[in-house]
Design a protein around this nucleic acid. Structure first.
Lengths: 321, 321
DNA sequence: GTGAAAGCGCTAACAC
DNA sequence: GTGTTAGCGCTTTCAC
């Protein structure tokens, strides 16, 4: 790896001029040519590590998501990537597994690597965003908000829960159960609250067993659905507060010989790759990619020096089917 | 961000001692305590950028995959991550979109960021792996091999293609079409060759139209399937050389009112999340995660100094259903 | 076992 | 417009 000094010597200029050239600063045309030629001859690439050490910042954004195998988050990541790429930033994807420990470690890495900023779908409220924010690195929370005063982009989750539940009511169902995510995670908690709100307003029965907590993945939804079907008075419809739990629930229904067209199923999110989804399944489409582009845009503004008070942007979900 | 000097001053030792402490070198017990206390008081985290500049290497591995939204590659990424994490390495995920330009850019970034190594699912043969390899960064190709002499991990793709095609024959089909990926991509090309080998051996008819090239995603498989069904003498079964094209093909079949249980479908890979998959669909399971762990293991060995000639490891696929 | 000091490759005053 | 120079924070000889 050639250095700026070797290029300078070959071009007959000072290292500073080489640096200026590569940073787009004013350099006389002749020297420009000399530097360009010398750099090409030596296959010179500026050393980002040195530059970062010197400038105390980089053009890399860390994106922390809880599950890289969930299409919702990969779509979100695509959104972030598109936007960041266009602005000349690279993104580093970190998989937190919804584990506060992993999340914390990645946050520390982001700080000690002088990343330009962090976009985080928080695994918990424990993440000490204050620490990294006070270091000067902007942070944007996405999908879920945090107690810290940082920018956030989220979906109107309660409205999504309401829309999903209402659709089941409109289809004639009354004994509607809810498979919710782990307690304490804002996004799905709000969707669950939407369910409860509709159920209460319509004076529908909500036996204890009709609320099932499950992990966020298909196996969680599957197990929860089995528990529901095994009850003395099983529900006649179910709402899952995320996509993957919906996949699991549907699988459990099919296994149990329950017809998805008669037994109601509503999902907040989209059943991934499920082109065979019975048309009766209600899906509330979440703007995953848009969440990502919006978060990236906000972060880039902050990186650019924007210092207004933290904002929270709320995107709307829409009925997909 | 506190520095090593501040810690040293507070602890009453030299910066070198602080450095030694954090690198696990021998430091007397008293000084150990002094340093630990001082570091804690100042919330000191070693600056990785400075360390990297000095050591000319880092504990970060770049993983370049063509499509972050394809479950095959995310599973592979999980495998890499698990293995790398256990060894104390972080991984940086880069989405090449099967675009040689993007791939090249990421490769350059990996070099100029002094990453410890690169695991790459090559988008094309154009990637100049020689350049980065000659820089001393080890490279492992995964899923697809390259013309460069680097380590590689792949699947026995031809065997997978043979197994899939044979299964369709055994189910009684004879007019078997093939939806292959873009020409020039080794992995799916070999699967296609497996198909042709079986078809030839069994003296089955292979009209030109029975080989369809498509992009790697569901929309590609969907369009190809429509073309097949529109033919004068349509096939009675089809093989897709990857998972997502299988999803698209299945969708097209359902839309056209073709019963997947009668019309044969075989997929090299797994139909993601498709619990409703008709049992008649043949799936050849690919060891995606294992591909990742194996690649990571090889890379870590290289990083550790292993200098044996490049190896290629071939993993077996297995019939899943 | 410990400290002093050089230097990794770059950028940004500062002087000209 | 251009060169000189100091230093970003760390690791690592080299003495002691």
């Amino acid at each position: 790896m050639a250095t700026i000094y070797e290029v300078a010597k070959l071009a007959g200029v000072s290292p500073a001029t080489v640096s200026r050239f590569f940073n787009g600063n004013t350099v006389s045309p002749e020297k420009q040519r000399a530097v360009r030629d010398a750099a090409a001859k030596l296959a010179f690439t500026p050393n980002k590590t040195a530059r970062r050490l010197r400038k105390q910042s980089s053009e890399v954004i860390a994106l922390l998501i809880p599950d890289i195998e969930n299409p919702f988050f990969t779509a979100l990541a695509r959104g972030v990537e598109d936007r960041a790429q266009a602005a000349g930033f690279s993104i580093v994807l970190c998989n937190t597994d919804d584990d506060p420990g992993k999340e914390l470690r990645y946050l520390q890495i982001a700080a000690s690597e002088q990343m330009a900023g962090v976009i985080l779908a928080p695994a918990s409220d424990e993440a000490d965003l204050g620490a990294i924010a006070s270091l000067g690195s902007p942070v944007v929370a996405v999908d879920r908000t945090t107690p810290y005063p940082v920018d956030a982009v989220k979906v109107d989750n309660r409205a999504a829960g309401i829309a999903a539940t209402t659709a089941l009511f409109d289809a004639g169902h009354r004994r509607i159960a809810c498979i919710a995510g782990p307690a304490g995670i804002e996004s799905t908690e709000d969707r669950f609250l939407g369910w409860r709100q509709v159920m209460t307003a319509r004076r529908a029965a909500m036996p204890d067993g009709y609320l099932q907590h499950a992990n966020f993945r298909a196996d969680g939804g599957h197990a929860a659905m089995r528990r529901l079907l095994a009850q003395d008075e099983p529900p006649d419809a179910v709402l899952t507060t995320n996509n993957l739990m919906g996949v699991g629930a549907l699988q459990a229904m099919v296994e149990a010989g329950v017809d998805p067209a008669r037994f109601g199923l509503a999902v907040v999110g989209e059943l991934p790759f499920l082109f065979l989804t019975p048309p009766a399944v209600v899906q509330i489409r979440l703007p995953a990619r848009h969440l990502g582009t919006t978060a990236a845009t906000m972060l880039l503004e902050r990186i650019g020096g924007d210092a207004q008070p933290p904002r929270t942007i709320v995107l709307r979900a829409e009925r997909a089917s």
